[in-house]
Design a protein around this nucleic acid. Structure first.
Lengths: 230, 230
DNA sequence: TCAGTTGCGGAGTGATTCGCTCCGCACAAG
DNA sequence: CTTGTGCGGAGCGAATCACTCCGCAACTGA
């Protein structure tokens, strides 16, 4: 925001500045999407990235295209996190590594955008591989006896999604209270720690109801019929 | 939607139907607010309640007035839940009773509306009394040794807020997939159980960072300065 | 049977916000 | 100087917002 135009930059920004703008755009898009949900506007994204809407539309032909790229990146991070977790020796730490990483940059943040753009084959493939890795992560943890009895991969993924959004931080930054941002970050770490520790095997009782099926998780990425909804 | 007008109803609906509509309106308002956040529209609320916007505006002079009444009711339920929890003999069960009730009808759902309406003295008084009751609930649980070391009342309230929203159910009903609603409800119960069990005293390690202050919780109800935001 | 009354649904209204286009400008190279 | 390139943001038509208003159905007292 403001008038900074050219000014400081001087040498070959032929593609250097371009890449920086692209990263800022993607970061801003994820943040705004997490805050404003399905109603996130391109103007807000561009403003948060510190660029004009013109620059945004030069890189992405449409809002949907930006969200698609965002989703692809999130899915890649999701898959990487699961594989990294599987590579760890400590079973519990591996599970937690995946959970933490997935919460931080998870597809949960862009769930509100689900159904507003077409899902490419690459996305479904990435999601499939990720789910498979997570299922193995969960199975391994159960075999090691460190994961609470009855917890399924779907339980885990839904819990992660639940923890992905931060209502507190959303409102804080929506009101512009930057002075409390660090405190909110700290508070969120504690909450996540508490919630994830509920996954540990221990004296806690059985889970209520029966294990949820995968359809709860896959359903959302395919718009039902008749484009958007209702 | 639909033309059902009078039809089935016959006897003295002078005030019976009116009360039913009011309840439906409040219920719908809470649901839509939880789904659409700050951008919830009166049309959506009225439609979900099965009434016309005219009926909504005959009972509430403005959208803000509806949200105020909604907030007041939620705060009352919140206070009641805390007091009921205190009245229980079993300390842990008392805490869980409060948490469950607060999650289900919690002020967390209407957090996005915070700052969009004026806070009355009655609201602040109710919130103050509720917070006091919760603080006692937490203190009592700590004395009994059933609550995880280091957990503060603010931690608890923020965790409850985190669990108040259900991204899964939101999207489900936004897409009109009613056939999966029961499964989603069941899945949510499991997630809440897991997360709340992380509050139990046990072998889990210490919480990261330091205890968050109350300002994180009270800040939001007072618009900073300059009305809405930004 | 029939005016009179009451509460209802939803089309209409001006204001606002949306996704997106397009143009003037700052700067580097020739 | 002229030319070329990527930029910010004003501007545009469409969509959506909170809110008003009116015709109608259901019921009442006679």
């Amino acid at each position: 925001m403001g008038r900074l135009h050219g000014m400081t930059r001087s040498r070959s920004w032929r593609s250097e500045e371009v890449a920086r703008n692209d990263r800022a755009l993607l970061r801003a898009a994820r943040e705004v999407l997490a805050v404003d949900g399905a109603h996130a506007s391109v103007a807000a994204i561009a403003a948060r990235a510190g660029v004009g809407v013109g620059s945004l539309y030069r890189r992405y032909r449409t809002k949907q295209e930006l969200f698609q790229r965002l989703c692809l990146i999130a899915l890649r991070e999701y898959l990487d996190a699961a594989n990294e977790g599987l590579a760890m020796d400590d079973t519990w730490q591996g599970l937690m590594h995946y959970a933490m990483a997935s919460i931080r940059s998870g597809p949960g943040s862009l769930a509100p955008a689900a159904g507003t753009f077409d899902v490419t084959d690459e996305m479904t493939e990435l999601a499939r591989r990720g789910d498979r890795a997570v299922a193995e992560l969960v199975q391994r943890a159960h075999r090691a006896g460190v994961l609470r009895a009855g917890v399924t991969a779907v339980d885990l993924e839904l819990l992660i999604e639940q923890l992905s959004k931060s209502p507190l931080q959303e409102q804080l930054q929506c009101q512009g209270r930057t002075e409390l941002y660090d405190a909110a970050l700290n508070a969120r770490e504690r909450i996540i720690t508490i919630a994830l520790d509920g996954l540990r095997a221990g004296p806690a009782g059985a889970l209520p109801g029966q294990a949820p099926g995968y359809e709860l998780f896959t359903m959302r990425w395919a718009p039902p019929e008749g484009e958007t909804a209702e």
